[in-house]
Design a protein around this nucleic acid. Structure first.
Length: 226
DNA sequence: ACGTCGATTAGCT
DNA sequence: GCTAATCGACGTG
């Protein structure tokens, strides 16, 4: 059983979107299920959705609907939405109205047997190859599946702040020695020039990152010599 | 390692 | 009616 660190409070998250996305790297997402089952995963990859000019954001051009309302709510509000008809993504609202941070990948820390159970249930064909632990939450919808964020639970999580009793964030003061890669976002099919902006952040050499950007990593290494 | 494709549903992104 | 901030399966090299 791992140590319980300090829970993050609203004041810890009181930052503009890009600062929040960087701050969240290395922090721990904690989920409490029935029977007191605890799941923990370290946040290793985040993305910013800024609203305003950002065409990839659900809140582009100030668009405000019932669905994207959490993006306009106070810092630390959970925004869960369905994508491609069958998957969910989990976001945390940041300081600016209409902006949020998408959690894209976690490094599993606790409750991996349970995460694997949820992941295996979700895959239809009965392939017997077991999932590597590092790959249990290596994508925005995979982490939702592994953390049991699904249709029946979305209403218990969406719109809530992270002070609720089934989902919260913890600090990990001893995990501070890591390098961060800035890269373009993943899976954006519009937003043209915004596709190239470095709005995705991930921990270098972490096996649970969903997709490496080798060009960005090369540029990072070159800048190390400055 | 990398590209392509089909699945599936709510909101209008 | 159409789209989507994805995933896993399958094919190719």
């Amino acid at each position: 059983m791992s140590i319980n660190y300090r829970r993050l409070l609203k004041e810890d998250l009181d930052k503009p979107c890009q600062d929040l996305a960087l701050y969240l790297l290395g922090k721990v997402l904690v989920r409490k299920l029935d029977h007191n089952t605890i799941l923990k995963g370290r946040i290793v990859e985040t993305e910013c959705y800024l609203g305003g000019e950002d065409k990839a954001s659900h809140s582009f051009n100030g668009r405000r609907t019932e669905a994207n309302e959490p993006m306009y709510m106070p810092i630390g509000t959970c925004y869960v939405y369905m994508t491609y008809g069958m998957y969910y993504c989990f976001n945390i609202s940041s300081k600016e109205p209409g902006a949020a941070v998408l959690l894209r990948a976690l490094e599993p820390l606790e409750g991996m047997e349970v995460m694997e159970k949820f992941r295996v249930q979700k895959t239809k064909s009965n392939n017997t190859k077991s999932l590597k632990i590092a790959k249990l939450c290596d994508g925005p919808s995979k982490l939702c599946i592994a953390f049991d964020i699904k249709k029946e639970n979305v209403n218990k999580i969406n719109l809530t702040d992270l002070k609720n009793d089934s989902l919260w964030l913890e600090d990990d003061p001893f995990y501070d020695d890591f390098k961060v890669i800035h890269s373009a976002r993943i899976g954006i099919n519009r937003a043209e020039e915004w596709n190239t902006k470095p709005l995705r952040f991930y921990i270098l050499n972490n096996e649970s990152v969903s997709k490496r950007n080798k060009t960005a990593e090369r540029q990072f290494e070159e800048n190390q010599f400055d």
